[in-house]
Each structure stands twice: as structure tokens, then as C-alpha cells.
Design a protein around this nucleic acid. Structure first.
Lengths: 333, 333
DNA sequence: GTGAAAGCGCTAACAA
DNA sequence: TTGTTAGCGCTTTCAC
């Protein structure tokens, strides 16, 4: 910058102004400085800028398992919005280990990132296991799932609605005996779709029997196992609501392998609408989550929080929608 | 830090040393300083550290489309290795637009990241369209695909082998009439699996006719379309090699929908081994890419380059392996 | 509209 | 082994 200043015959202050607040510089001077910047290929040292201004223009996004394809669209939404505002994404994978969470939280408290986008189920244990919980509220933090008794700005999916949509669809088709394969119930997102589903059934006077409520770690292989379990039952359900598509296709695969017809013998409704859902045979009926929009909205709130703008609403809820395809149909007569 | 120093009755230099090079501090002093650091909850300001040391300990990873689930495991491999070395991941999505590439490249030249991991097909156009190509070589840059006539440290998948594995498997099954659905042939990774496949066939005295070589943008929907095209042909192939699993499941879906049996009427071999491949019905035979290992290896080389260590080999090639499942079988008699 | 100068928090060279 | 001190490159008051 000093070199540019010298060549342009101005002070470094003027160069700095030309670059960051061009309006404060006389047009003529501005032009001269800018042309020399271009000529010399000068780029400001972002480390110095960040240090001086105390802002890194980067957002840390924490997920529990980056391997989960579910996050791909979510990241895209964040990335697009962030880039449009001049922010970069730092991505961290906690693997649900407190130690990893801690590493990433420390980056915040040590100014490596300006804010944290928390898309992990549950509370950030790694952080305030050792510290005071209230510290959390001082950090620019936006949650992407509800977090019990912690009043954080939140952008979440309306999972109650998601569960309800699945239930109503299956009820409409005439089903009366259901199974629900859900994730760990202490996760807010899981709990809500669970409740939404059950509530809708209850309103129709139906309850899912305990042996047909199957809480597992979600995933393809776990889905296979859950399907086997279901097949072992005497009185099978005619429809299953599965808490994500990965698990649903594992189940679907097992059902078909064991000679069942879907939806003839059993209807399957997934959750997420992953790209492969529509390429299954039969095509998977599922609850579609607008993941990209979710990411963008979360990022928008994140930046608002970082920049201290006042937020209209501290809690945004994004509605999923039902995608009816071929894996659900009326029960056998 | 000054506060810690004061309380501990030492100079800031000693605090700094206690934190970064504990061996240079007397055990007794070290203990005292550290206990006060803990007590006060002091965290060093990483912006200042980065600024002063001129290193950000962050790695920029550029992909063409973060939405592609293919990258998930790749990121995981990078993240794990990076974190173990105290680096963070910056993730950028170029959407194959020169402007976006440029944004991210600028972050490097302006010290926002220490190095760039380039997992985009083709050369970084956005960067040296305007500048001199040789600049590229000054940046700590590791490519994850071969890049024509640019001698960059590279960690790539052995796609020649991948293509060959698919070909040999299908030849072994007795196939003689093939189709190949490939990505854009100007992409090195695509070209190589294309060549590997064709070379193996040629060695068996077989050639893929032009009308059965179908270069498209890869993806589920494009796979559906390619399948329709194939079905319209008079003299159908008995086997298809498809350049990724997403495209393969799109084709599979269409084949089944149109009443073909797979592999009875046509065998399908994919590429990647995405998690869903094993949950298709029939389960998808595919060429498995060890994506996590790939990411870790790439990250390892990246850090070696950043830290100026000498590298044993500037070009690492990772072998894929064939996963034989149910979508491939002998051709009809 | 521009320049001089202080100083952000830290590290490292050098001195003691 | 520890302390003193210069200075990393920039932004921003304040004075002109």
C-alpha cells in the first residue's frame, strides 16, 4: 500500500480510503490511485485488514457429519448468500464429539470467525461443559434447529408440519395401522416430526403402537435393519413414516428384496427429498425440505446478527411440502 | 495478553512464549502463566496472530458444485486431516463461473487462506484469464484432477484404472456390445475413465460405436434422457458404463420403468459408489472411489506445500476398485 | 480532500 | 530464562 501511495504521490491514508470508501476521495485522485492499484496488481493484505477492523468476514458452519448428503444443498444456500455479502464459509464437522465442538467454538472466541451457524442437533455441549452457559449468548450464534431452553435466533424447518403432512397423506389413502421409524427422540428436529405425525394420527383417533415406534440412528443400513424388524412382526403396519430418505431407501430395498410389494403390501413415506428419491423404483414419496432456502435464510439471519442489525423475528420456520410419488398408495383391501 | 502478563508478573513476551513455545519457558513460570490463562479465560486473538505470523492456517477448497453429494466424503477426509494439523477449511463453490473462481483466488493472493485445494475439472480460468498463467505456480496450490500442461502437485483418482475395471468386468461377463455414457470429454477425469474403458475394450478387439458413446452433463435427469435415447436404438447394447452413479440411477430408473430387466436385458455399471448405490433394486455395480482417503491425501499434500516441506512425489494417484453387485450380469444368450 | 500519526495484539530479534 | 522493543499492514481520528 505504501508503494502504491508513493507512486500515486499520495499518502497511504488516501490509498486506504480510495479502496474502502471511495466517496471520501476526490474523483481525480481516486482515478489515479485505482489505476495504479490495477497496474501494480496490488491486493490489500486481508489479515491486516481483519486485524485492524476486528472482523473476519467469515462464518463458521458447524454440522454433525459433513458426510451426510443432506447438507449439500444447505451449504449451497449459505454459500451463495454469504458470498453475495462478501463473507466466506468455514466448515466444521463436529462428529458429535465435544472435543471437536470445542475446537470450533474456540475459533469464535478467538476471532477466527465472526459468527457461528449451528446445524447440529442438541446444544453445543463441547462449549459450555466447561464454561458458563450464558457465554453462548454473547457469541453471534444462529441455530438451525430448536434448542431447548436456550433463546437463540433460530431458522428451522417446521418439522411439526412435516410430520403432519406425512400422516395426513397416509390417512387420506386409507391407512390405519402405522409404523414410525424415527431418529433419536432427544433431538429437537426428530421430536417435532415425531409429534407432528402422532398428533395428526391422534386427531383421527389413531395411535402408533409402541412396538411400531422404532427410534434408531438414521441411515441406510439402519433402515435395512428396521425393515427386517418390521417384517418379523405378526401384525404388520400397512404404512411406514421414516424420518429421512436414506433410512427409507434402506427399508425400501429390504422390503423389495424380501418380496414385498411397495406400496401394495406397505407404503413408505420418507423425509428430506434427496435427489435420489425420485430415481428409486418405486419412486419415493417424501416430505420435501427446501434445504437451499433454509441455508440462505439462516445465513441472512447470521449476517444480520453479526452486523448488529435488528431482526424482525428471532425465529423463522420454513415449511416443508409433501412430494407424493409411487411408494405410497392405498392399503390392500 | 497484557493483563495475563501483569497478573502473572511476567512480560507479554513470556505469555506469548508460554502459549506458543512452552519449551522455552521455565516450568515454574509456565505453570503460573497457564493457570492464569485458564483462570481468566484468556484466548489469544487469532487475527493478530495470523497478521503477525503471516499465516492463516486455513485451506481454501474449491469445488464446482457443492451440491454434488460426491464431495461429502472428500470434504470429510480433508477436514479430519486439516483439523489434526490445526487448519480450518474454507469452502468455495465456483458454480463453474469465472467470476466466482476469481473471488476465491483473490482470497489467496490477499492472504485470506494459505493454500488452495482445487477440485474442479479444468484449469482455474477465472484466475489467469486476466493474469499471467505463471502466477498460479506461486500460490500453494494442489490439484485434485489432472490439469493439462500445468505442472501442479496433484492428488488424483486413477481414472484410467477405473474405466478399465468397468470394461474388464463387463468383458468377463461376456458382453460384446457396449455403450458408454460419459461426462464432458474435455474434463481430464472424464477423459481418463473414457480412455481407460475404451483401451481395455480395444485390447479385447472391441470398439464402442459412435452412436453408443454418449457424452452429456452428468446427473440423474440426464441419465433418464440418455436411457431413453438408448432405448430408441435399433441395435441396443447389452451393457452400459456410466460415468457416475447419479446418472446411472437415472438410467436404471428409466430402464425399469420401460419394462427392461436389469441386468437381464442390459447391464449397468456406475462410478463413484455413492451410499445409495447399494440400496438400489437391483443393487448397483460400480467403481468405488475412496473419496475420504482422497481428501485426506490431498490435504496432506496441501499442508506439505504450504509449510514448504519437500514432497516425495508431486503426483499421487489413488486406485479405485470395482464393487460388483446386481446391476451387471451376463448378457442374454 | 488529504496527510500525519497512533495503534490494533501479537511475535521474535536482541539484550540482559 | 526472561524482558524490551520494533514492527507486521492497515484504518481512522484529528488537524490542516
Amino acid at each position: 500500500m505504501r508503494d502504491v501511495a508513493r507512486v500515486a504521490g499520495v499518502s497511504v491514508a488516501t490509498v486506504s480510503r480510495a479502496l474502502s470508501r471511495p466517496d471520501d476521495v476526490k474523483a481525480e485522485t481516486l482515478e489515479r490511485v485505482l489505476s495504479i492499484v490495477k497496474e501494480t496488481g496490488y491486493r490489500s493484505n486481508q489479515m491486516a485488514v481483519q486485524f485492524r477492523t476486528g472482523t473476519s468476514r467469515s462464518i463458521m458452519v458447524l454440522v454433525s457429519d459433513i458426510t451426510n448428503a443432506f447438507y449439500a444443498e444447505f451449504f449451497k444456500g449459505i454459500e451463495q448468500y454469504a458470498r453475495s455479502k462478501g463473507y466466506v464459509l468455514l466448515i466444521g464437522d463436529t462428529s458429535e464429539e465435544a472435543a471437536s465442538e470445542r475446537v470450533y467454538f474456540d475459533m469464535l472466541t478467538s476471532n477466527k470467525a465472526d459468527g457461528l451457524l449451528w446445524n447440529v442437533d442438541g446444544i453445543p455441549t463441547g462449549y459450555f461443559q466447561a464454561d458458563d452457559r450464558s457465554d453462548l449468548l454473547d457469541i453471534p450464534l444462529v441455530a438451525c434447529n430448536g434448542i431447548d431452553d436456550l433463546d437463540l435466533p433460530t431458522v428451522r424447518i417446521d418439522n411439526d408440519l412435516g410430520g403432519r403432512l406425512a400422516a395426513e397423506h397416509l390417512l387420506d389413502l386409507g391407512h390405519r395401522r402405522f409404523a414410525q421409524v424415527c431418529g433419536p427422540l432427544h433431538h429437537d428436529s426428530v421430536k417435532r416430526r415425531f409429534d407432528g405425525f402422532n398428533l395428526a394420527l391422534r386427531q383421527a383417533g389413531i395411535q402408533v403402537p409402541d412396538e411400531l415406534t422404532i427410534p434408531i440412528k438414521l441411515g441406510i443400513d439402519q433402515g435395512r435393519r428396521a425393515a427386517e424388524d418390521l417384517l418379523g412382526l405378526a401384525n404388520r403396519p400397512t404404512a411406514v413414516f421414516v424420518h429421512n430418505d436414506a433410512t427409507a431407501i434402506g427399508m425400501l430395498h429390504t422390503f423389495l428384496k424380501r418380496g414385498l410389494s411397495v406400496p401394495g403390501d406397505i407404503s413408505v413415506v420418507g423425509y428430506d427429498d434427496m435427489p435420489y428419491a425420485s430415481a428409486m423404483t418405486p419412486e419415493l414419496t417424501t416430505v420435501r425440505l427446501p434445504r437451499r432456502r433454509w441455508g440462505a435464510a439462516a445465513c441472512e439471519m447470521m449476517i444480520a446478527v453479526i452486523e448488529g442489525k435488528d431482526i424482525e423475528s428471532r425465529e423463522i420456520s420454513i415449511a416443508p411440502e409433501l412430494k407424493v410419488r409411487d411408494s405410497s398408495g392405498p392399503p390392500k383391501a
